[in-house]
Design a protein around this nucleic acid. Structure first.
Lengths: 215, 215
DNA sequence: TTCTATACCGACTAGTTGGTATGTAGACTG
DNA sequence: CAGTCTACATACCAACTAGTCGGTATAGAA
């Protein structure tokens, strides 16, 4: 039997609904009844497919990983010939995603891990897999950009820079939630881009002039 | 009647307990009964001092602002003569705070705003006040550092850089929660320091050598 | 002393919570 | 065509939830 992706069974509907509801209200405040209502299924269906609410949380994080993986895999930023251009285009792509309402562009797993890191280790691990797995997709390009320039980074690695990009994005989402808009997040992503440009010795598009020679 | 700060009335005990409990479990998952138990007070005392759980959330965010304001106001990083040194020393101070368990160094308001930004506007605003107010304490030093160098920043402002430092820290906390340790957060703070050094034309302590002249 | 206001107590409640028990419609199997 | 399995649906429950309410203790004012 072929499991068609288009077939929206109760499980798929619940996972899609979970992405939306949890991004709006957080994990703890999202009730099973509410998730069922949003998915248009009954509670019986919920507990048929998931042992518990926490099990749904883990599945939702995995579902998020798959959804976002697909989005980034087909994105155009990979097409650049130069690896540094690919990294910068990734940052630009992330900035371009900051559209619509705050709950439309913020990160499910970043939200969930804040609430569950101590109380639900399985969810925390699923969130870590999602974030760290996504960061890992950047490492090869960063390493190539370093190698191309003969850079021997001391004090940081391609891995740590990749994780730093995710930290900036997650933090930008928090500021966007606090301020109720995407602008502050876009500003932070701009700073991230500028950092990467400076780090690799490329002069940022609109770099301030230094007129004094202090220090 | 003088209200002594040392007098631990039920209200103060509840606020202190709230900082701890909410940082461990998040806001939604922290029940009123649990907050009372942690504070060693009864439910009657809780609702005598706070109209609702959300009202406690707002008060806890304000209490957090006061507590952290005091901590940073007396910190030594202000003593540097050069404003850029003060900014960098602030970053170093933030890194030095990444000690102990994850719940000991992560941010209350960053956690709370993730859960409440859509459902409890009063809490969201209190969290925004806390984050933005703290960021504002950095603006004067950043502006002074810019002015000292005759920098005319295009594309960013002292305000946006100050907010970016908070974004990096908040994101670093999320990664620390996901990975269960402070190391990844410290790495991100290192990247933040390096960015500020590069931005102000100061060569980072251990900057990688560029051997090629691409671009 | 009496009045009043504040601070606190703890039993209670109405509604909600995650989870269960049982039933059943349809597809597949022999 | 009886038997079995999956994929749900419905009714239900014990525990928990935020919030209420009548009461008590104490201190200062009159």
């Amino acid at each position: 039997m072929f499991r068609l992706a288009a077939k929206m069974d109760a499980r798929s509907k619940l996972l899609d609904a979970a992405l939306s509801v949890i991004r709006h209200k957080g994990y703890s405040a999202s009730t099973v009844d509410e998730l069922c209502a949003a998915a248009g299924v009954t509670k019986g269906a919920f507990f048929h497919h998931f042992r518990s609410k926490d099990a749904l949380g883990v599945a939702a994080a995995d579902h998020w990983s798959e959804t976002t993986s697909a989005l980034f895999a087909e994105a155009a930023y990979h097409r650049h010939a130069d690896p540094l251009d690919r990294v910068l285009a990734y940052v630009d792509f992330r900035k371009s995603l900051l559209q619509g309402g705050v709950s439309d562009f913020t990160c499910l797993v970043g939200t969930m891990v804040q609430e569950t890191y101590e109380t639900a280790p399985e969810i925390r691990d699923a969130c870590d897999r999602s974030i760290s797995g996504h960061a890992a997709t950047l490492v090869a390009d960063i390493e190539a950009a370093m190698a191309e320039r003969g850079m021997v980074a001391t004090g940081w690695t391609a891995q740590s820079l990749a994780l730093h990009t995710q930290a900036v994005l997650q933090g930008a989402f928090i500021l966007a939630k606090a301020k109720g808009g995407a602008e502050v997040a876009a500003d932070s992503v701009d700073h991230l881009r500028r950092y990467i440009e400076l780090l690799f010795g490329r002069v940022p598009a609109s770099q301030p002039a230094h007129t004094s020679t202090s220090a």
